[in-house]
């Protein structure tokens, strides 16, 4: 579904990612792990098409054999890629509905969209009042992540990347979020969770784990790798 081939990324003069290659399969769940500052979020933003990042010429990113490099973020979104942001910015004067109405223009009837948002918000224990407020403005960390989750579900992507969906979220809220995703994301959606914490692994049960350290992909594996990270962290990589 999503293939990274020799992906190297620089921001300004500084190289952050070094030649990462990996193939994410349709419908599977992945965890990308690594210590803070290892380049995990850069990977997510680069795949989404952050305009300030420079992708090295030998690199390629393909979705269903369709090259993404060179296309703008909204074109990647149209191809079925979605990103839940680590720290979504406040959007004064714009409600969740305002944004999603434009995002899903021609795909969703506004009345249906309203009802769907209300229903999803209830499932996510989102206070109704927040739906009327400017998106992310004055929201707690947990509220922001719930709103990210809700948007991803509405977008119904082929590949969903969740950047630190667990950061700033308490145990109950995280359980609500992961249960919601299990219900509402299609089986065919490829799910990629970026985290530095092994706690998330229990909730999402990934098919495969990738470890990134200092911008290099240093390990991939299954349950054993998860167990090893849980007990001894990232030092051994």
């Amino acid at each position: 579904m999503l293939t990274l081939n020799n992906l190297s990324v620089s921001i300004g003069n500084k190289q952050i990612l070094h030649g990462i290659s990996f193939h994410f399969e349709t419908g599977k769940t992945y965890a990308i792990m690594g210590p803070n500052g290892s380049g995990k979020s850069t990977l997510a933003s680069a795949v989404m098409g952050h305009p300030d990042f420079s992708i090295h010429p030998e690199s390629s990113i393909n979705m269903e054999n369709d090259p993404l490099i060179g296309s703008a973020p909204h074109e990647r979104a149209k191809k079925g890629l979605a990103l839940s942001f680590q720290a979504p910015l406040a959007l004064p004067g714009i409600t969740l509905f305002d944004l999603m109405r434009v995002a899903l223009e021609g795909k969703a009837d506004p009345v249906d969209l309203h009802q769907k948002i209300d229903a999803y918000a209830r499932e996510l224990d989102i206070n109704e009042e927040l739906l009327k407020r400017s998106l992310n403005e004055g929201f707690s960390g947990g509220e922001r992540k719930k709103f990210e989750t809700l948007q991803i579900a509405l977008l119904d992507p082929k590949v969903a990347i969740f950047d630190e969906i667990d950061t700033g979220v308490d145990v109950d809220a995280l359980r609500t979020i992961t249960a919601f995703l299990a219900t509402h994301l299609s089986e065919k959606t490829t799910k990629i969770f970026i985290t530095h914490s092994a706690k998330l692994l229990k909730a999402i049960t990934p098919d495969e784990i990738l470890v990134i350290k200092n911008g290099h992909l240093v390990a991939t594996g299954g349950d054993e790798l998860a167990h090893s990270i849980e007990t001894s962290g990232f030092d051994r990589f």
């Binding site: 933003s45 989404m48 098409g49 952050h50 305009p51 300030d52 703008a72 973020p73 909204h74 990647r76 979104a77 149209k78 979605a82 990103l83 942001f85 979504p88 910015l89 959007l91 004064p92 004067g93 714009i94 305002d98 944004l99 999603m100 434009v102 995002a103 899903l104 400017s134 948007q151 977008l155």
Partner: peptide, 25 residues
């Protein structure tokens, strides 16, 4: 850039994203 990336990642073109931000403003 960050705000534009956020909106564009939802499928909005740059002009739609800017228009939405202006309407909000």
């Amino acid at each position: 850039t960050e705000k534009l990336l956020y909106l564009m990642s939802r499928g909005l073109s740059q002009s739609d994203a800017e228009g939405l931000l202006v309407n909000g403003f």
